[in-house]
Design a protein around this nucleic acid. Structure first.
Lengths: 329, 329
DNA sequence: TTGTAGGCGTTATCAT
DNA sequence: ATGATAACGCCTACAA
């Protein structure tokens, strides 16, 4: 490794004081143009980079944000997080921040990790994913006034902290409308047990759309855990009813894939729409609701850096999903 | 936020000097047991955490390693990286390191990022994925003696740097053997154009196994880009030959999924085996070769921290994949 | 507009 | 075995 280039090296090279170099970096407007040029040149030729550790010691800011990486549970929906993280890293980078990863198996452990991360690395902020009712993590962070954003609404208290989310109800409403437009009248919904914010939201979009069309949603929905097998089982049940649905909207691509298998097993023609537009959906030709993940990630970074850099933006962002049409509906 | 707890706070609380606290942390053996206990207690009650920035300034080490997150290209194979990153984060954590993310669109840009990261954050090391023949990135890092490990062999010079890889040839050999054991004699291979280390390796496993069984592999393989549509097209070609294969081994789950669709389209019974055991494979019941990604990640961290902490281990690790049997073979 | 002095929290060196 | 002192690179007063 070459000799370390510090602010002093640059100062010597540009024949100015260290302070002037620092000013060029942090307050360019107070430096005379000619001097600024000379310093910039020196910086470029020497390949100087401000040492973050030293800067952090002085300013207390690390320009680091943390995000959790989860153990691809079901696998199919895991790719959502993957794409979100990628977007996060790109946008953070552009804003001069870096993303640090951590894992946690439960909320308690995750909070302990916050403590660690904050103490050791003085992280500037957190991006949380998968929040739910009464999330202890947000309370902990808020108590200590640690800046954070969640990707996902706080279902209890919508205005309690900055968040970015995708309008799931609008997504399932779009899906349901699509089926209605195609002439379907008996449209079912496959989702998760009542009580999860995300799941209830997605079901609501389907329900209100059906109701608005003068149709009765009763008996046309099934609730299970998220999984291909669960989706298949539920769909079989629906297909076995006296008046089986001719179309089904699902809360996830996993459920949709299961539904699709059930449909094909009995050689039915039932239309199927999934949620998340995962690679699996693309691969099997499944019509699915797509979340704008890159945009969501970018908004998260904007919100966070806005707070950090003192130019806060509108703290709640609800993005609209889009229906990606393929072969199944 | 509560008052910052520094080494001085702990020292005062335990009625020792700052240096003694530091010694308890970094060289416990030279501190008298009784003193050590008292200091440990103070650390615990105060919730003290060594400030990494300050430590880094002094030692020049950040306890940070970097890994790239890629834009889920095909999507199906993207989950491989996802699972690898998760493993990386977990193992690094256990070893006292943190993972920092970066993105890059090409090798040149990635190298520029190394420069940034090294200059600004003094990263301790890198974990590279997806290396190929004559990779400029490894050369750059080696030139500057930056510690790094690759997940993937340097196909040119196997001993040039530490790496961890999965034996792809062994994987396709297993797959081929499985088909042979099931009585298949015409076993095809769907892979990528010659020239990629990984692709050639996987094809070699199939070829040698067939040859060893006294069978002729000629004309039974197709090379395309990686994608579901490509796999389907190639498989259609093979199925249209006078003596179509009764089984096919694929270099990826994407190709295998395409192959499966081609097979089903003509209502053939051809056995299909994929590679990577992605969630898609699990979802559609595709038999696939599974890479031990968590283990690979753990080995990468071991290799890297071994070098960093001065107890280097065997620098080349080749792991064995396993065949996951499902419905398609 | 530019230069000087001090300190952020830690650890290495040296002295006790 | 323990303590004092200096230094890592930077930034923020303040002085010139």
């Amino acid at each position: 490794m070459a000799d370390k280039v510090t602010i002093a090296t640059v100062a010597r090279h540009a024949r100015v004081s260290r302070q002037t170099v620092s000013n060029v970096l942090n307050a360019p407007h107070i430096v005379r143009e000619e001097t600024r040029q000379r310093v910039q040149e020196a910086i470029a030729t020497l390949g100087y980079r401000a040492n973050q550790a030293a800067r952090q010691m002085r300013t207390g800011r690390s320009r680091l944000i943390a995000a959790r990486i989860e153990p691809t549970r079901d696998g199919i929906n895991g790719s959502v997080l993957d794409r979100f993280l990628h977007g996060l890293t790109e946008t953070a980078d552009a804003a001069g921040y870096r993303v640090m990863l951590y894992t946690a198996t439960d909320d308690g452990q995750e909070i302990a990790t916050y403590d660690d991360l904050l103490g050791a690395y003085e992280l500037d902020g957190f991006v949380l994913t998968g929040t739910d009712h009464g999330d202890p993590r947000t309370a902990w962070l808020a108590d200590r006034s640690v800046p954070f954003v969640t990707f996902g609404r706080p279902w209890d208290a919508p205005e309690s902290h900055p968040w970015v989310d995708v309008d799931g109800a609008a997504g399932t409403a779009q899906a349901t409308s699509r089926l209605l437009a195609n002439g379907h009248r008996r449209i079912a919904f496959l989702g998760w047990p009542e009580g999860s914010g995300v799941g209830d939201d997605r079901r609501a979009g389907w329900r209100t759309t059906l109701t608005a069309a003068g149709l009765d949603p009763d008996g046309l929905h099934r609730e299970t855990e998220d999984g291909v097998a669960d989706g298949e089982r539920s769909m079989r049940e629906l297909l076995a009813t006296p008046e089986p649905p001719t179309g089904v909207v699902c809360a996830s691509d996993s459920l949709a894939l299961g539904a699709l298998q059930a449909v094909r097993a009995v050689a039915a023609e039932t239309a199927v729409i999934g949620f998340d537009d995962t690679p699996v959906a693309a691969a099997v030709g499944l019509t699915s609701v797509s979340q704008p993940l890159a945009v969501a990630a970018a908004r998260c970074v904007e919100l966070l850096t806005g707070v950090l850099d003192g130019h806060p933006t509108d703290p709640q962002v609800l993005l609209q999903p889009a229906l990606v049409l393929r072969h199944t509906a």
